[in-house]
């Protein structure tokens, strides 16, 4: 099952500069499995997306334009042809 994943500038060091890569959700059909598949081909990227058991607070992942936090987070379901976008939060402030 092939899924296109859009990679933000800051993480392209892991993808040889590629803006988008194909990943496989390994039959499990979840975001978590997809990230494991990404990690297999692009070692180090998983740690930039996941902190312990959860998605990192300042990383946004979208499946077909839906923020995964609203559709099950790492357990969000994926199907063939879905489009995944990773975007770091634009955030900061004086505190």
């Amino acid at each position: 099952m092939a899924i296109e994943v859009r990679i933000p500038t800051i993480l392209r060091t892991y993808t040889g500069g590629e803006k988008a890569v194909n990943a496989d959700s390994a039959g499990a059909g979840t975001l978590s499995a997809l990230i494991d598949s990404l990690e297999a081909n692009h070692p180090g990227i998983k740690d930039r997306l996941i902190d312990g058991e959860d998605l990192r607070r300042f990383v946004n992942i979208y499946i077909n334009d839906e923020d995964v936090r609203f559709i099950g987070s790492l357990e969000a379901a994926l199907s063939d042809g879905d489009q995944v976008v990773i975007l770091p939060a634009v955030a900061g402030g004086a505190r």
């Binding site: 946004n60 979208y62 334009d65 923020d67 936090r69 976008v85 975007l87 939060a89 634009v90 955030a91 900061g92 402030g93 004086a94 505190r95």
Partner: peptide, 11 residues
Amino acid sequence: TFYEYDSTDLL
């Protein structure tokens, strides 16, 4: 003391 773009706006 903090700012963050809304995630939908960001996409």
